[in-house]
Amino acid sequence: MNTSPTDPPNLDAEVSRVQRRTLQYWFEDGLVELAIGSSFLLLSSWIATMSLLPTSVAGKLGAGFPVAYILIFLACRRVIRRAKEGLVYPRTGYVSYARPSPRRRLLSQLAGAIVAALVVLLVRKAPPIEAWIPAANGLFIAVLLFLMNRSAKLPRLSLLAGIAAVTGLLLSVRGGQTDQTIAALFAVIGLVMTAGGALALRRYLRQAPPPEGA
């Protein structure tokens, strides 16, 4: 700790700094980006597969997309927790964060399901505005990343949010089949995220050697 927390005027700043530091600790090892990035790559493959199949089969696959979307991100949380238990907590310690209220969790899951359903609907039955669907998706992901990062304030997550927004916009301007451009958008975001996560994990593992006897 660089500043003395007993210096009265700085106590609030110190609490904010420590809170930010503990939130940054969650992202420090890159596992979150690796898991979410892999999920985006999976979703990208799903949409790309849909676009290659005959409409009747693609329709069935599309109907399962919202469920897959939720299941993938739920599995993602479990994978992150397991990976942290095995890799991070023995090295640098365990922290559990205050859980969001059940109402907030339900709202997040509902919002996720609605977005997934909208993506499928727009991809399959897109009106003339379909060219802007990748831009809207990119912007939506950028906003999510921004919200995720608003307390931790990590530059690499802000950069990722920017990349998502710009990639979506560029894909919209470039044009092409909507499902393919969305698949491309998810692929770009997934690749950038997994690459960033892998680099962060490598740095973390170098800085935090395994505990003695492990």
């Binding site: 700790m1 927390p5 110190e14 503990t22 310690g93 365990y94 859980r99």
Partner: peptide, 22 residues
């Protein structure tokens, strides 16, 4: 106060985390 500030920011933390961060 350092320990309390860290614990205030989280739900729980283990000894190793508090040791490294404090």
């Amino acid at each position: 106060l350092v320990i309390a500030t860290m614990l205030y920011a989280v739900d729980a933390a283990d000894f190793l985390y508090l040791l490294r961060e404090s």
